[in-house]
Simulated scan of single mutants.
Amino acid sequence: MNRARALWERVPAPVVDIVLVTVAAMDLWPMLWDDTRLGVALAALGCAALAFRRRFPLGVFLLTLPVALTQPFAIAPLVALFTLAARSRNRPLLAVCVALAAVTSSVPWPLASFSEVGRAMTLIDFVYSLATAVAPVLCGQLLQAHRDLARRLAEVEEAREHERMLHAQAVLARERAQLAREMHDVVSHQVSLIAVQAGAMQVATKDPNAKEAARTIRSLSVTTLDELRTMVTLLRASGGHATELTPQPTLADLHKLVESSGTQAQLSGELPPTVGTPAQRALYRTVQEALTNVRKHAPGATGCVELWQDGDHVGVTVTNSPPTRPSLALPGSQHGLVGLRERADILHGTLEAGPTTEGGYQVRLRIPLSTD
Rank of each mutant, 00 (worst) to 15 (best):
R174C: 08
E352I: 06
L271W: 05
S113P: 01
Q197E: 08
T317C: 03
V40H: 10
L123G: 15
A43Y: 11
G311A: 04
V134G: 02
N2F: 14
V40S: 14
Q248P: 11
V127K: 01
G269K: 13
P272I: 03
R10C: 11
A24V: 09
N2D: 05
T224W: 06
Q141R: 11
A180K: 05
A68W: 05
S333Y: 03
D372A: 06
P30Q: 00
A265F: 08
A204N: 13
R295P: 12
R343T: 05
G303V: 07
V103W: 14
R218P: 09
E352L: 01
D125C: 12
M31K: 07
V60G: 09
R91S: 13
K256D: 14
A135R: 08
L94F: 12
A242Q: 10
A99N: 15
V134P: 12
L235A: 01
G240F: 00
R341S: 07
T230N: 14
P249W: 15
L172G: 13
P77F: 00
L225C: 07
I18V: 15
H162Y: 10
A48L: 09
M31Y: 12
V96M: 07
M1G: 06
A353E: 05
E163L: 10
L267C: 08
S106T: 15
V203C: 03
V258F: 04
G240N: 07
S105H: 06
V314Q: 00
R147G: 12
S192L: 00
A76M: 01
G118K: 03
M231R: 08
L93S: 14
S106L: 04
G354N: 09
R366D: 06
L81T: 01
R89L: 07
V107C: 05
L347V: 08
W29N: 08
L369C: 09
K256E: 14
L143R: 13
E306P: 02
L153G: 02
L228C: 13
A200G: 03
G199F: 04
A95G: 11
W29T: 10
G303D: 12
G199W: 00
V258D: 15
N293Q: 00
G118H: 05
L337G: 09
Q264K: 15
T233K: 02
V98L: 11
R151F: 14
F73H: 04
R5V: 15
P273N: 11
G360N: 01
M165A: 07
V16S: 03
T350H: 09
L235P: 01
V275G: 04
P355Q: 07
R295F: 03
Q248N: 11
T22A: 13
A13G: 15
E342C: 05
L307G: 09
Q71C: 06
A177E: 05
P57Y: 07
F52T: 01
H241M: 08
A214H: 04
L271E: 07
P57T: 11
H241R: 01
T122G: 12
M31P: 02
A80H: 01
L93I: 05
W33R: 02
L78K: 00
D345C: 11
Q144F: 13
L283D: 10
G269Q: 13
A6T: 15
R325Y: 08
T22G: 00
S327I: 07
M1W: 04
T317G: 03
V23I: 09
P249I: 09
L245Q: 07
A68Q: 01
L20S: 04
V127P: 03
P208D: 12
V258E: 03
